[in-house]
């Protein structure tokens, strides 16, 4: 029996945040203008989860990482050209719509189905990782539903740290209000961890890792099955970008102490 972890990271793709993201309505529902043509990146929250997963797997011999990703196959392929160079993983691809206007319930069902279909997966050692929310829409619900469907009841959201104790139990830091963390302990796998930012930097690209990953990524993309996902029956009353607020005041020769006092007053709401 393996002592390593079977870590499945659920991670979608989102448009590059530097692009112009302009919500528009079309007959099938809302979408981002020219979304298909915009460059995409791995959802930043999911990316943190992936780096944490790879770090844990490297530190725990016998572990393996899968990345389960739902998105248009062609766009997934482009994103993989970068992501696959970061850390070792095996891709499980689902060819379907990605973005902020799909139904979370449907997405969770597809992801859970894909995880269940991974050959030889040891559910007793399973850790389901993902972002606690998404850059395309912060519903924060998908991962919880994936866990429920897999009957994994130990779930943690907004995770910033996972420490493994000598007895194999976990100590987990979850974000709570006020910039503080809640510390939980868990006996061990299986568990669902929805990551916040974690604490690891983005790994540099490694061409050797990339070439090794690509041996499984490309076949996975080729055999990716079409996955019907959308938001049938859902009506979007309104979609818009968060409004930007910028208050600029130009003041010359303000002493540093005065600037500091203003910042403190702003933070404390005084």
């Amino acid at each position: 029996m393996t002592t390593g972890y079977q870590i499945v990271v659920c991670g979608g793709i989102v448009p590059d945040p530097l692009q112009t993201l302009d919500p528009v309505a079309n007959p099938a529902g809302p979408t981002i203008k020219n979304e298909m043509m915009l460059p995409a990146v791995l959802d930043p929250w999911a990316a943190h989860a992936l780096y944490e997963a790879a770090h844990l797997a490297k530190a725990t011999p016998g572990s393996k990482v899968w990345l389960v990703s739902l998105g248009p196959k062609a766009k997934l392929q482009q994103v993989m050209m970068t992501v696959a160079q970061k850390v070792p993983f095996e891709l499980v691809a689902l060819d379907g719509q990605a973005g902020g206007f799909t139904d979370t319930y449907e997405v969770a069902a597809l992801l859970a189905g894909a995880i269940q279909a991974i050959p030889g997966l040891d559910r007793s050692r399973l850790l389901v990782f993902g972002g606690w929310e998404s850059a395309s829409r912060g519903a924060g619900a998908t991962l919880q539903m994936v866990g429920e469907r897999l009957h994994v009841l130990d779930q943690f959201q907004g995770v910033d740290r996972l420490a493994i104790a000598a007895d194999g139990s976990f100590q987990i830091l979850e974000r709570i209000e006020g910039g503080r963390h809640q510390v939980s302990t868990c006996a061990g796998p299986p568990a669902v961890l929805g990551w916040a930012t974690g604490s690891l930097p983005e790994p540099p690209n490694n061409s050797q890792v990339g070439m090794a990953n690509m041996r499984t990524v490309m076949p996975a993309l080729h055999r990716a099955k079409p996955a019907k996902v959308g938001a049938e029956g859902v009506t979007f009353a309104r979609v818009s970008l968060p409004s930007q607020r910028r208050d600029t005041r130009i003041v010359k020769d303000l002493p540093v102490g005065e600037i500091a006092r203003e910042i403190v007053a702003w933070i404390t709401g005084a």
Binding site: Q78, M81, T82, A84, Q85, N205, S207, M211
Partner: peptide, 22 residues
């Protein structure tokens, strides 16, 4: 990138696509 890969004929070379990103 998808357009450039076709224009410059490396749409079937994932090694080169990764290299570009790197």
């Amino acid at each position: 990138d998808d357009v450039r890969q076709i224009l410059w004929r490396f749409a079937d070379r994932y090694d080169l696509q990764m290299l570009v990103q790197s």
